[in-house]
Write a protein that binds this DNA or RNA. Structure first.
Lengths: 203, 203
DNA sequence: TATTATACATACGTTCATGTATGTATAATA
DNA sequence: TATTATACATACATGAACGTATGTATAATA
């Protein structure tokens, strides 16, 4: 029994979170035991209860992390004032999808969110968070279309809001279908096709 | 303690399944207790263990029921040899989406499948079933596009398979987004718009 | 350097759902 | 009509996960 330094404690915390991703992915959030996570992280349950209130608190930390990362990507992209916003958005969406193929971490966390947890009881709260994020991200999408209108790349009678909602749903569906059967398609091949198909006739 | 007739037994069975839908929806599949379901169905756990092997077996029954209902709707629609297959498919998809607004049962069961259960362990099996169904349904969609090509309503260079996958993803996304926040949109208004948007430029 | 708070590990009691075993009244069947 | 299988209800035992309480060695701090 050694007392750790603050640095070591932070490392322990992130080891627990990493372990949680693996355990949640394999056993599901509801079925995952704190002992499972502790074992995987090579600590005891005591360590988890020190860093987190309970299992939900661990999940909350993971949830936060991912949600922020997504919005940041879009915001970062928006700062780039591209001459052709539609192509820019098409590229962004395509890249986001393809990222799932290489980024094993995002793949796992998104799999957890969509297929490895049930949003009931105290978990229901996270659906609200996801909805709020979705609304914000949809508004960010909308910005691309508004810019496109200024460039006369998009006819004026198109409602950017509805269009953004449609695009968001489209991406959600592609992600869900991909997560459910990752061997079904090769994302790096299909994502550009899917996106091309959506943006083709917006001009 | 009375012995029931065969009819009464079947009614008990379906009462258990109906109760399971409510309990799964409220508590989640993993968290739902057989006692919860029994209480809701006004029987004891004994009754459930008589009709089903365990909780998974109850879920399996619900899963089957929904999956079949979906494919049947499409197959039934395909039997109608519509002169304009694209419009026919557009209408079908729109109707399927709008149905979620009125059909409380489908809404609940789909909510369970997407947001109230985790597909790990023995539940993972159901993802394979869903994938298989999705493939079949995608092939059915493909049939509409093939017919459209014969009618010269669809340019020959479009790949019906990829197009079907895109449509399937689109619908999946719309459903998921709707289930997550049913108050976010009015499906009877938005579904036709979403679908119009997809089919607009296929001609 | 003495003290205190930290970063865990260990131990304990409680709850709770599960599966099974058993009981039982009565449809069904012959 | 006697028998048997059915359609459950009831009772029991087991185990597992949780939260908490407590122990403890050592960074951190003054």
């Amino acid at each position: 029994m050694v007392r750790r330094t603050k640095e070591e404690a932070l490392e322990t915390r992130s080891r627990i979170m990493d372990a949680a991703v693996d355990v949640f992915f394999e056993r599901g959030v509801a079925n995952a035991t704190l002992n499972d996570i502790a074992t995987r992280a090579e600590v005891t349950r005591g360590a988890i209860y020190w860093h987190f209130k309970n299992k939900l608190d661990v999940f909350d930390a993971l949830h936060d992390q991912l949600q922020l990362s997504f919005a940041d990507t879009i915001l970062g992209d928006l700062r780039n004032d591209h001459p052709h916003p539609l192509l820019q958005l098409e590229r962004l969406c395509s890249d986001l999808l393809i990222d799932l193929e290489t980024n094993q971490y995002k793949f796992k966390v998104l799999s957890i969110l969509f297929f490895k947890c049930d949003y009931t009881g105290e978990m229901e709260h996270f659906l609200n968070l996801q909805n709020a994020r979705k609304k914000k991200n949809t508004e960010l999408f909308s910005e691309y279309f508004t810019r496109a209108k200024k460039h006369k790349h998009l006819s004026a009678d198109v409602d950017p809001t509805v269009l953004s909602m449609a695009l968001m749903a489209y991406i959600t569906g592609i992600v869900v279908d991909y997560l459910r059967d990752a061997n079904g398609i090769v994302m790096s091949e299909h994502a550009p096709k899917f996106m091309r198909f959506f943006f083709r006739n917006l001009a």
